[in-house]
Simulated scan of single mutants.
Amino acid sequence: MTVRLETGAGTGGPAVVTWVATGWDDPRVAALRALMDAEIGPRYAHPDGAPRSYPPAPSAGEVDVAWLALAGGEPAATASLRRLSVAGEPLRHEVKRVFVGPAHRRRGLAAQALRRVEGSARELGVRRLVLQTGDRQPEAIALYEREGWAPVPVYPPYDAVAHSRCFGKDFD
């Protein structure tokens, strides 16, 4: 599915953004995730430089869809819908890796990415979505709250990550 829409650019005026439903292993989505890791990772760096341990990243088989925004053909934003299965826990549908590249911010793309994932979840009959972020990402927390997401208890496997903040959203 491809959707085209006009959106105001942060500094360069209107631009056409094309949203594409793709997969977790799409190289353009992977490139945006790498940018996210490079930007967000230092916020959570261990004071002594030791690597922090995190739950494993999703596999391509767990991701129902990865939404990708293209601005002028360039990857601009992404968000994905994951089926999270943890032993002894109910299946959860989770939003993963909402990220907008630095050159494309302040255009509403993060909120659009969330809405795309929410729409995909509804199409699959999902009645509740959850997501995890960190307490050192105030811009992400503000986005989720602004978009109607409510704080929920930290759920596995993120309960082992001290800085986790989790949110949920129910659908009628």
Rank of each mutant, 00 (worst) to 15 (best):
M1Y: 06
V3L: 13
L5V: 07
L5R: 12
L5G: 07
T7V: 15
G8R: 15
A9V: 13
A9M: 13
G10W: 14
G13C: 06
A15G: 07
V16L: 13
V17S: 02
W19N: 02
A21Q: 06
G23D: 13
G23V: 02
G23I: 01
D25A: 12
D25Q: 09
P27H: 05
R28N: 09
R28Y: 04
V29Q: 05
A30I: 12
A30E: 11
A31M: 01
L32R: 05
R33E: 08
R33Q: 10
R33P: 01
L35C: 04
L35R: 11
L35I: 04
M36A: 08
A38L: 13
E39S: 12
I40Y: 06
G41R: 04
P42M: 10
P42F: 12
P42W: 11
P42A: 12
P42V: 06
R43E: 13
P47T: 00
D48M: 12
G49E: 12
G49N: 11
A50H: 15
P55Q: 00
P55T: 01
P56Y: 12
P56V: 07
P56K: 09
P56W: 15
S59Y: 13
S59G: 15
A60Q: 15
E62S: 11
E62T: 10
D64H: 14
V65S: 07
V65T: 07
W67M: 00
W67I: 00
A69V: 02
L70A: 04
G72C: 02
G73V: 01
E74P: 11
E74G: 08
E74W: 15
E74Y: 13
A76N: 08
A76Y: 14
A77G: 03
T78A: 01
A79V: 06
S80W: 11
S80H: 12
R82T: 07
R82P: 00
R83A: 14
L84Q: 15
S85Y: 14
V86R: 14
V86Q: 15
A87Y: 13
E89P: 09
P90T: 08
P90F: 10
R92E: 13
H93F: 08
H93D: 12
R97T: 09
V98C: 06
V100A: 12
V100Q: 14
G101M: 09
G101V: 02
A103V: 07
R105E: 06
R106G: 08
G108E: 03
L109N: 03
Q112C: 05
A113K: 03
A113P: 11
R115N: 08
V117L: 10
R122E: 08
E123Y: 02
L124Y: 03
G125L: 02
R127E: 05
R128W: 06
L129K: 04
L131T: 05
Q132W: 11
Q132C: 09
Q132D: 07
Q132G: 07
G134C: 04
D135F: 03
R136W: 11
Q137V: 05
I141V: 15
I141N: 07
A142Q: 08
A142M: 09
A142V: 14
L143E: 03
L143H: 01
Y144D: 03
R146L: 08
R146M: 09
E147M: 10
W149C: 08
A150Q: 13
P151C: 05
V152Y: 05
V152I: 05
P153K: 01
P157G: 04
P157I: 02
D159P: 06
V161M: 03
V161W: 07
A162F: 03
H163A: 09
S164R: 04
S164F: 06
R165D: 03
R165A: 07
R165S: 03
F167M: 12
G168P: 07
